[in-house]
Nucleic acid binder design. Sequence first.
RNA 1: GGUGGGUUGGCGGAGAGGUUACGCACCGGAUUGCAAAUCCGUGAAGACCGGUUCGAUUCCGGUACCCACCUCCA
Length: 481
Amino acid sequence: MVEIRLTNTRTRKKEVFEPLDAGNIRLYLCGPTVYDRAHLGNARPVLVFDVLVRLLHHVYGADRVTYVRNFTDVDDKINARAAETGRPIREITEETIQWYHDDMDALGALRPDHEPRATDYIVQMIAMIQKLIESGHAYAAEGHVLFDVRSYPDYGKLSGRSVDDMIAGARVEVAPFKRDPMDFVLWKPSSDDLPGWDSLWGRGRPGWHIECSAMSEALLGPSFDIHGGGIDLQFPHHENEIAQSCCAHPKADFARFWLHNEMLQVEGKKMSKSLGNFFTVRDLLDRGVPGEVIRFVFFQTHYRKPMDWTEEKREAAVQRLNKWATLKRNSLSDSERSFDGSMVDETVLEALGEDLNTPAVLTRLFSMEREIMSSTKQDTEIALSFFDTLQFLGFADLDTQRLYRERAVRKAIDTTAMIEALLAARTDARKARDFARADAIRDGFAAAGVEVKDTPQGAEWSLAPGFDAARLAELARMQGS
RNA sequence: GGUGGGUUGGCGGAGAGGUUACGCACCGGAUUGCAAAUCCGUGAAGACCGGUUCGAUUCCGGUACCCACCUCCA
């Protein structure tokens, strides 16, 4: 069995992962606040957890893993969006959830087992808040309920800071009703025009952090295996979750492993809404960048390192996936066959087990690719394992040309037949030693964005990113094919 | 000011106290009507200064620079 080692932010060490219950491994990932399209940075924790979940499925069995990712559907950003647009909150959150599903599906990310919405767990949140008040960790003041950070000695442990240090250097909102400037809101009052629920403290809505504490407990129990999110959530969000959950359940562990991914950057800067340098997953998909390509680029950088999204990487990923698609066509007798994960490469699994080392996974894939390239037989063990492994990693569909093809189909041009006819014409020309015509076809392909490679077994082709169906049609007409 | 992380060959990017990372690009060779692809091969690194060690890019300390968090953010 593959040993899984993960860097635990809580201990700042790489530790061997041992499930609390090997029959039910439980993970929680902080999901999106649903008021807008997911930007590219939002995809990073999703892909990190996707790889982790796939590994756990493989090692322990898919039915022994419970993966939860929430939707935050009550938040002031959502309220603001509703006020701006005049649309009902529910309409905005429903639409955004649909978008999120569409976009993450396109990246090949598995859906979690549970996707709880905060508004469905208000009762549990209120119960937890009450419990915290009863145990002296929280207090009500002026319609608010606040968590008393001084009541929890370990506050700041996850992020390695002390309450005193934080107060010393930082700007903190000093509301007059706070006992300590670092105390954070569990519940706040809502005016009539804002979403609100009745509670012992009046009509109000939850603070941001309590939902994750309440939902993880409801779905995974007070102790579970792995909790994750972006490194920017380490403080204050995760610190506050720990404070809430551990004070509500002093005997439980809450999350034993904390995984944090580094930020995604663009031009060396963090991608963020406030800097305005962000773009969405949908922007890329609409530009014709397939989800597999985005996935591949993310795999190139270890999750705990900052990752720069660049056009150069995007292009390199397209080339590589094209190569794999061609390899699949040529090395398997039936390129449409399905794989069941029984031949996933051991070295790849070991690399994933070593703190989800996806760059090392790619290294191994390159070496497998090399082996297949140099073998002439079809359906060799290594080829079968390679494509089974790719499927396991979420690269089931290597068709990066799908989007170009779809465009061509809309124009009612049968590109495949056209290309094959032109290739046949070129072969005839070469046999007849009519090199001028052979070169004209070759150059025409290049101009239309069709890449042709001659192999001992015959010509192979693929569509380049700049594929132009109209120019291909023009070439076919000129050559009379 | 506090906290955490980083600095590797032209570019991207890992692991390991001592043996080729790997990919892209480049160069040489094979192959090809030409080319592409493919195959074989060469070269190229570890911010700076100290320390530990038989030996450090890898461990420890310091310096410089970069990034993030401390405020909504994955």
